[in-house]
């Protein structure tokens, strides 16, 4: 049994973290169907929604035609017509630019999607805690010398890694759909994007785990999460700019951490980076993540030590 004692001493406090994280990730990357769906989903979203809502194409010079009735009434010459058409077309992209901060709506939306994939992935990962409890896996792990915090951290970590990977996939898939990088973009900005995603995912998954860990049935946490998701999703700048929303919605959107996450990523990827704004975004998301992670981990930890 000297082997046992040797192990005890050489083992780090975080042992088991990677094993438990990898267990979660394996369910995803080792299951071809699940993995393929992760890839197909953004294609469908971008293809369907991105194009259907591609407001830019509605008012581009090609799609915009001055009605013949107007031309005859005003007795416009062909050159005047094409000039006007150009004017309206440019006006369209100017409106887009001033509304969305970019002339490419698909770029605007793709970033929103990156953030929401993070939201939904962390939510579904949170639900896996319920299964672990029901199937007795949690109790088994609790009977081994793995520290309680490692059990929670592994959940947070696997959800975060998975979300970040899915966001990257969306970004890559969005490029052939016409994703336009901002003028000030450098590859270094990608690091910032992932730092931002990391923060928000850690915060969200800690929150979802804390919601789920007490429950041995999926229904209660599902109801709570649905309630949370609605404002998190629609009262944010994901698909529509906040300053064009009604006032009451703006109030919600302005405290919604998703708005700051999305704005931060847009600053880094598609806008002409406004560094003050970016710093503000990071600070907000950082504080949100720190608070939620602390609350989530403390609550879960206390529960596991019951």
């Amino acid at each position: 049994m000297s082997e046992t004692n040797g192990r005890l001493n050489s083992r780090s406090k975080l042992h088991g973290l990677w094993a438990l994280t990898n267990r979660e990730l394996k369910k995803w990357y080792k299951a071809p169907v699940v993995f393929l769906l992760t890839l197909i989903q953004p294609i469908i979203w971008l293809g369907l929604l991105g194009n259907a809502l591609n407001l830019g194409s509605l008012v581009s010079p090609d799609s915009f035609a001055i009605p013949a009735q107007v031309i005859t009434q005003l007795q416009l010459s062909p050159s005047q017509v094409s000039g006007l058409q150009q004017l309206f077309g440019n006006l369209g992209s100017q409106i887009l630019q001033s509304t969305f901060g970019t002339t490419s709506y698909i770029s605007f939306m793709a970033v929103g999607m990156m953030a929401f994939t993070a939201l939904f992935t962390t939510m579904f990962s949170g639900m896996s805690v319920v299964w672990d409890r029901r199937l007795g896996f949690l109790n088994k792990v609790l009977s081994t010398p793995v520290s309680r915090s490692v059990i929670i951290l592994s959940k947070v970590l696997s959800a975060t890694l998975r979300s970040m990977f899915q966001a990257l996939i969306i970004l890559i898939i969005a490029i052939p759909f016409g994703f336009q990088l901002g003028a000030s973009f450098t590859p270094l900005n990608l690091l910032g994007v992932f730092a931002m995603l990391f923060l928000v995912c850690v915060g969200l998954s800690s929150m979802f785990i804390a919601i789920n860990i007490r429950s041995s049935r999926i229904e209660t946490p599902m109801a709570v999460m649905n309630l949370l998701n609605l404002p998190l999703t629609f009262a944010s700048s994901a698909f529509f700019p906040i300053d064009k929303m009604p006032m009451w919605l703006q109030a919600v959107a302005n405290v919604n951490p998703m708005s700051y996450t999305i704005d931060g990523i847009r600053q880094l990827l598609i806008f002409n980076t406004n560094y003050t704004q970016l710093a503000w975004d990071f600070a907000y998301v950082g504080i949100f993540a720190a608070v939620l992670t602390t609350i989530g981990i403390v609550l879960s930890w206390r529960y596991l030590n019951k």
């Binding site: 192990r7 088991g16 094993a19 394996k26 081994t144």
Partner: peptide, 18 residues
């Protein structure tokens, strides 16, 4: 874990004991 093999499951347990 149903999604892992028997061997992987045993190794997972081993990891939990470090």
């Amino acid at each position: 874990d149903e999604d892992l093999t028997g061997y992987e499951n045993i190794l997972l347990c081993a990891d939990l004991y470090g």
